[in-house]
Computed example of a mutant assay.
Amino acid sequence: MIVLHASFPIEPDRLDEALDIAETLVEESNEEDGTIDYRAATDIQDGNVIRFFEQYEDAEALEAHTDSEHFQRLEAALPDLLAGEPEVYQFEVDSVTELEL
């Protein structure tokens, strides 16, 4: 499994636009073959940062996602939305265990 965590600092006056794009991206990404889970949230400490948490079955699913029309829309809009450099981390995961709280 591949897990991505991405953080995007957004210009405050463009936050509503970025959240609209993120909402559509989440909805459409969760419909893709090979996507296990795809979520976005605003950061509690900095409400102008959108964080994406993505899980894919394999590298092919991730590649298909980056080639998708909805991802390309986000990528095209980013230069006008960003207030700084995004951070993106990719994790290769061999096993997952759900913890009970």
Score class of each variant (00 low, 15 high):
77 A>M: 06
72 Q>T: 13
23 E>R: 15
65 H>C: 06
65 H>D: 07
69 E>F: 07
60 E>R: 08
17 E>W: 07
6 A>G: 12
64 A>D: 13
6 A>F: 03
96 V>P: 03
17 E>R: 15
40 A>I: 02
86 P>M: 08
53 F>N: 08
79 P>D: 02
21 I>S: 07
37 D>P: 00
21 I>G: 06
65 H>A: 04
21 I>E: 06
67 D>H: 14
25 L>T: 14
16 D>V: 05
7 S>L: 08
24 T>I: 15
45 Q>A: 10
101 L>P: 07
29 S>T: 12
70 H>D: 06
14 R>G: 08
42 T>P: 00
22 A>T: 11
91 F>N: 11
83 A>I: 03
96 V>H: 13
36 I>S: 04
9 P>D: 09
14 R>T: 03
90 Q>K: 12
41 A>F: 11
95 S>H: 14
32 E>C: 04
37 D>I: 05
71 F>G: 02
72 Q>I: 05
20 D>G: 15
45 Q>S: 11
58 D>Y: 07
70 H>R: 12
11 E>G: 01
33 D>T: 03
2 I>K: 15
101 L>C: 01
43 D>W: 00
97 T>K: 11
64 A>F: 04
35 T>D: 05
97 T>E: 15
21 I>R: 12
33 D>Q: 05
22 A>W: 04
77 A>Q: 09
63 E>N: 11
94 D>H: 10
28 E>S: 10
22 A>M: 07
96 V>C: 10
42 T>N: 01
27 E>F: 14
54 E>A: 03
49 V>Q: 01
39 R>P: 00
75 E>G: 08
18 A>V: 09
50 I>Q: 01
73 R>M: 01
55 Q>A: 11
1 M>V: 05
98 E>M: 12
5 H>N: 14
6 A>W: 05
93 V>K: 05
81 L>P: 00
22 A>K: 06
44 I>H: 06
14 R>K: 15
61 A>F: 08
80 D>A: 11
16 D>M: 04
87 E>A: 11
92 E>Y: 11
42 T>R: 13
71 F>A: 10
24 T>M: 15
14 R>L: 07
40 A>E: 08
5 H>D: 10
19 L>Q: 10
5 H>Q: 15
19 L>E: 08
59 A>Y: 11
57 E>A: 09
91 F>T: 12
20 D>N: 14
15 L>F: 10
73 R>S: 01
49 V>M: 02
9 P>R: 03
72 Q>A: 14
53 F>C: 04
90 Q>H: 07
32 E>F: 04
59 A>F: 05
26 V>Y: 11
84 G>S: 04
83 A>F: 02
89 Y>A: 15
28 E>L: 15
5 H>R: 13
97 T>M: 12
56 Y>W: 06
31 E>W: 02
71 F>D: 02
43 D>S: 07
74 L>P: 03
